[in-house]
Design a protein around this nucleic acid. Structure first.
Lengths: 302, 302
DNA sequence: CTTCAGTGATGCCTCGCGAGTATCAATTTT
DNA sequence: AAAATTGATACTCGCGAGGCATCACTGAAG
């Protein structure tokens, strides 16, 4: 069913009308609009025909608004103002000066690179609003596929189909122990020294890749770990360690500054590795200006 | 300073854009709009140029919205909907089916003709809103001159310059007495029988014409009235009479139904006359459709 | 790998309509 | 009563929106 073009008037008519409604004088309005007076008269007449209502009462010496004209003037004003502002707004959007970027991140990101990126980004693009959402690697990958987030900070898994990524962090983990733990005074440790220690990890479903690499490090060290707790989000793990429930892995960057009541010790020999990348849909590199602006800060080329 | 025509695009562009944004398909959109596809392509290209931002990503096989395009689609939709509704709304306004009428009235009007008029008017024009404001005759004349009300129900004064009026009520007054008053049992009275009675009137400033006619009736009857109270609005006078503070004038219509605790007695001989007219600015009889609708009910021709 | 259907862009032409000029008709001012 | 002011009308002109034919490119089918 053809939906035919439904307006019998144009913006021009409304702009002309607004000016006549302001001045209540066809000649002055015509001058202000830089058109000849007859053209203006005809356009107003057309508008009245199109709307099916008289807008002005013209006694040859005076022009007045009718009730319909007053009502139209009130409605037209905000519409024209909004439309006049459109080009600027859209241009800002297109140039990535304005907009919204939905960002996923892990606790590791927030503990390391993210604060600095946010500070710099906000300085460079104060008019872009970020929507930040802490969520596990697996959920971020799903959200990227579904289009729920535009980019994410997560642990790189083997498979990131259709995504572009850039590595932001890669560090061998140490161990976080309660400050009063028997081993806390050691200068450094090996994983097999920690066979008796209960561990605070995170649910495997949240980040299977890293989880399996943790288990692999244990098995290379010849240790079967005892899992005391699985906790999420990440920041809570520190609390549990401080409470004496066990130890957890942590990379040096994340352990700086060191929270109260815990001790960080490097690991010799086999140890899991913390990795962090920023990832986004490859297709959107150019088509989403606000995202491009964010990537320009968070994942600069070269 | 000529305020030149400031839009480099027209409603047509926005309608075309909306259809392409809906279908994401130039040929189908062109068909729906009943134009040829090349015309549509060119109009969209013009709009993009005018707005200074790409709205669609055209890979020859697929059309997608850009960020700017999505933003425009969101803004354009309500604007076009509003503009499409305009003709109907304005036509209703112009035909007096819709709108607002500011009405002044006196207590006498509310006690007599006004309720019936309002009931009938609301049945005939349910979409016109009335703004009803009780105020004295003098204030209504000022409000009519200032344009604060469109019509009023008031006591006709000698001078109503520029107003059209129609008489709605003209009745010789009787007297309202407390039910337990010595004279309340009389079948009827003359004004001179009431020489000793204190009177409840209204401030002269509120309606000088009627007030002076009340005094004239007294003087014709050879009585100098004792004014006990001046009160406004009108309805309060009944309360004062009931409380035994004095008598007041009232026309038969206003005394029906008779309130509790008071007695209404007709007057023989000289007595003031209650008059009520509806008045409006002569110029506006035709130019204010909502007012015309109200007058059609409140002051029907002949 | 080749072919073909499908899609948006481009070139060219036509004609409708908006705009300008000249003028009119009516009303207020002097 | 004459003049000035103002919105409407008649006529012509030129821009640009629209239609038609065609191109250039893509992705799917064989």
């Amino acid at each position: 069913m053809p939906r035919e073009y439904q307006f019998s008037y144009e913006l021009r008519h409304l702009v002309y009308f607004r000016e006549v409604a302001r001045t209540l004088h066809f000649r002055k309005a015509a001058e202000a609009l830089a058109v000849a007076q007859p053209a203006l008269s005809r356009q107003i007449a057309q508008l009245e025909l199109a709307l099916g209502a008289a807008l002005f009462i013209r006694s040859r010496r005076k022009v007045e608004l009718t009730a319909a004209g007053r009502a139209l003037a009130e409605r037209v004003e905000p519409i024209l103002r909004g439309l006049a502002a459109l080009p600027g707004e859209l241009r800002a959007l297109a140039e990535g000066e304005t907009g919204r970027v939905q960002v996923g991140f892990t606790g590791l990101a927030m503990a390391t690179v993210l604060p600095g990126i946010l500070r710099e980004f906000h300085r460079a693009y104060p008019r872009i609003r970020l929507e930040l959402n802490e969520s596990p690697t697996s959920a971020q990958l799903a959200a990227l596929a579904a289009g729920d987030i535009a980019c994410g900070f997560f642990h790189p898994d083997a498979t990131t189909p259709g995504l572009k990524t850039r590595e932001l962090l890669r560090e061998k983990n140490g161990v976080l122990l309660p400050a009063d733990h028997a081993l806390a005074a050691s200068p450094s440790l090996r994983l097999r020294d920690l066979a008796a220690v209960p561990w605070v990890l995170f649910p495997r479903t949240h980040n299977p890749g890293f989880y399996d690499r943790v288990l692999a490090a244990f098995s290379r060290a010849g240790v079967t770990p005892r899992i005391a707790e699985e906790v999420w989000p990440r920041a809570n793990a520190v609390g549990l360690v401080r409470a004496g429930l066990g130890a957890t892995f942590m990379c040096p960057s994340e352990a700086r500054p060191l929270p109260e009541g815990v001790t960080f010790l490097p690991l010799e020999g086999p140890a899991p590795e913390s990795r962090l990348v920023i990832g986004w849909r490859a297709k959107e590199t150019m088509s989403e200006p606000a995202l491009a602006s964010f990537l320009a800060v968070a994942a600069p080329e070269t």
